[in-house]
Amino acid sequence: MRANFIFSEVWIGLRRNLTMTIAVIVTVAIGMALLGIGLMINTQVSSMKNYWTDKVEISVFLCQKNSPFDKCKKGAATQAQKAALEQQIKGMTEVERVEFENQAQAYENFKQQYANNSVLVAATRPEDLPESFRIKLKDPENYGNVIETLQQAEGVSQVIDQRELVDNFFGFLGTLRSSALIVALIQVFAAILLIGNTVRLSAYNRRRETGIMRLVGASNLYIQAPFVLEGMIAGMIGGVISAVMLIAAKIVIFDGMQNYLVLATRMTWEDVGTVIALTMATGVFICMLASFVTLRRYLKV
């Protein structure tokens, strides 16, 4: 009886303010989808960080015959310089191991990396690519003065820390995440105001009923439950829509990113599920809270 009664009241309430209900649903859906995307970017970034910090290397490129660097005016690095450099690198405490990459190997890697760009590959000869030392650090976060020291060494054209490249990309993702979260926050704020208004309208529309309920001694919970449930159901529908949007985002954006960026690791459905559960819970909770707080103001019991 109780449940029946409350749900019929909820249904009537939602139907009476249909336009407001739709506004709430849309706002919650967009807000929660953005919140979810922010969380998904977060997951993506942390999984990528784990994956990539193990793999980043410091590349020490050597001077070639026609290198356009000031340091390479004396011509290509000599065998003696290479040997000295290798000894110097091996002597550093931060270094775990070092590999030499000759021009043929460099060309192979280059071909692989730019497999899509046949014109570039065709225009490049192995002689154009620099030889390099690939350094793996013991602790990728701790490169000490390795880079500065090697920068000064004879025969070195350029030292590139891949970490910097990865960090740039993470920085970009971080900005994306922050923007998504800020917009989500604004949406949540809008949703709270909208829900407040909806509940107020609802309370006004049903002031006769609630007046009589008070009079005959219905408990506060009983009087308020339909209003709070109304907000919760609107929030839940919004949450379901945002879940659909998040699934679409996972397929289109995140899996798509995988195809274009060598850096990306794949996001699992498990991660998406967690994010959806989290956003839905947040949406429903916010709606419930907003309804409840407004009721305190507009439904004196």
Partner: peptide, 14 residues
């Protein structure tokens, strides 16, 4: 019946 419903009286009683 509304007066009884909202104080949670069972349907049979109502």
């Amino acid at each position: 019946a509304f007066a009884l419903e909202v104080i949670g009286k069972p349907r049979r009683f109502i």
